[in-house]
Amino acid sequence: MKLLEVNNLKKHFSVNDSFLANLLNKNSQVHAVNGVSFSINKGETLSLVGESGCGKSTIGRTILGLYEPTEGEISYCGKKISQMSKKEKFGLKEKMQMIFQDPFSSLNPRQKVKDIIQEPIRSHNIVSREEEKDYILNLLDKVGVDGSYLNRYPHQFSGGQRQRIGIARSLSMEPDFIVADEPISALDVSIQAQILNLLMDLQDEFDLTFLFIAHDLSVVKHISDRVAIMYLGKIFEIGDKKDIFAEPLHPYTKALFNSIPELTTTTKENFSVLSGNVPDPIQLPQGCYFHSRCKYAEKICLKKEPELKEVNGRKVACHQL
């Protein structure tokens, strides 16, 4: 069953939106997301992978309604979000939650742990006041934080524990769908493994659906069912994790996989290197967005933008396949 469907989503941000700029027709836009479509089934984990600035976080935030989409539709359980009433949208906030990247800035430093988790419970009327304390203690137990820390402040915890508190806060809404935006990249390696295991356990227990945003491919391989590789606001390759990791097809996916350091005992003589940088998202290139760095680029790549098409059980956007 499709839980979430995203259809041709676009999100542009104005950089220079002053009156004068508008008058002189000089207002420029950052093209963060440029027509992205995908769907997520219930209980599944879809990962969005890409380098910084490719629009993966913007997609997550737009789905949750933190940004208004410039174009395109997002449907939840078959219903378009843009056509929902205010009350329905408020109810949707319970069902869709977020886990943030930085556990240091996503918790209010002036609130105690108890208040951090209590606040959403009260505003959404999840449980009655009498049951509240037990409910919070139960949540903390689920995420592995000691119940005696209820009256502590965020700064008294380590990064990993703070991330656990953030997770408890998202779970307090009894959500179906969670956007996890780089939930472990701010943590130390040995702590990363703890949080990854926790997320996977919670997914089993509560039947959660994840949109997992990350740049670390080995983590993505570990946690996801399906993977989407993004570049400059476009999906280049999307499909089953096993297929993509067994044989990446898009030249960018290949290059990305080759650049990832792996634990080895032999010294790597030559990293397969992509030359150049990601193009400027204010002035999008013509044709395929990757052509300036692609060694297989031909004439058609400079002119025509490739569509996502079915290749070997997955979808790839490349003219050469």
Partner: peptide, 23 residues
């Protein structure tokens, strides 16, 4: 050993990552 085991390896299928307890 713990550090090496806690890194997910690309061409290995692991169900759970081994973790180092505590801080």
């Amino acid at each position: 050993q713990g550090l090496i085991n806690s890194i997910p390896v690309l061409d290995k299928n692991q169900k759970r990552l081994k973790q180092i307890k505590g801080l």
